[in-house]
Design a binder for these strands. Structure first.
Lengths: 100, 100
DNA sequence: TTTACGAATGCAAATATATAAATATTTAAG
DNA sequence: CTTAAATATTTATATATTTGCATTCGTAAA
């Protein structure tokens, strides 16, 4: 019983931490650019968004750490991409609810 | 051109603020209890979750302020409910991605 | 091995958030 | 009008997040 409740709390915290990772304007912008299975490097994202390289890397690190993105190093570049394509539904859903 | 970009930033910030409102373990728990069009009072939620009344009210205020919930006062009670039923998809989606 | 490029990390300041205790407000009942 | 119940707000403290600069790390090319 206690275990079940603890498990629920753990699940809630995992879900919250993933949502929190996504809940930032620049990180939403990143997710939008990665929709459809696209893969982008840190530099590409940093230039697309017009924010600092280190800030970009930090945001990407948060998204990766919380299970939203994956990364793969290829030579000097690191490509980032969505871990679950279904997550872009969240962006679309929130977007539709905030645009009326 | 600048206007369009500004508009995008505004939209991103609105989406982020709605997601941020949802990105908290207790607030996700609240949303789960409100799935399916259910309406609950502050006291009911505070007892369901086992957290302080003032904390509960604070969380509900955040969700309402950011457009996730609506509220309707009826006598001494205030009932809270989902503003957009579709938002419970977000909870389900994140939940499915964090449970594997 | 030296150089240069892309990416990640450590750090600090500013800002934001979470929590709960205390207090205030609103409403219904007596 | 007074009281009590349900909410909401205020306040204070603790904690977390954001950002950019400076630096370091990893890799490939010269």
């Amino acid at each position: 019983m206690l275990e079940i409740k603890e498990l629920d709390i753990d699940k809630l915290e995992m879900a919250a931490s993933m949502l929190k990772a996504m809940a930032h304007p620049m990180r939403i912008a990143i997710l939008k650019h990665l929709e459809g299975g696209k893969r982008l490097t840190v530099t590409e994202i940093h230039e697309l968004l017009g924010i600092e390289q280190s800030t970009t890397s930090h945001h990407l690190g948060i998204l990766k750490d919380k299970g939203v993105l994956c990364s793969k190093r290829e030579g000097k570049n690191t490509f980032y991409y969505l871990k679950y394509e279904v997550l872009s539904q969240i962006v679309e859903c929130v977007h539709s609810c905030t645009c009326e």
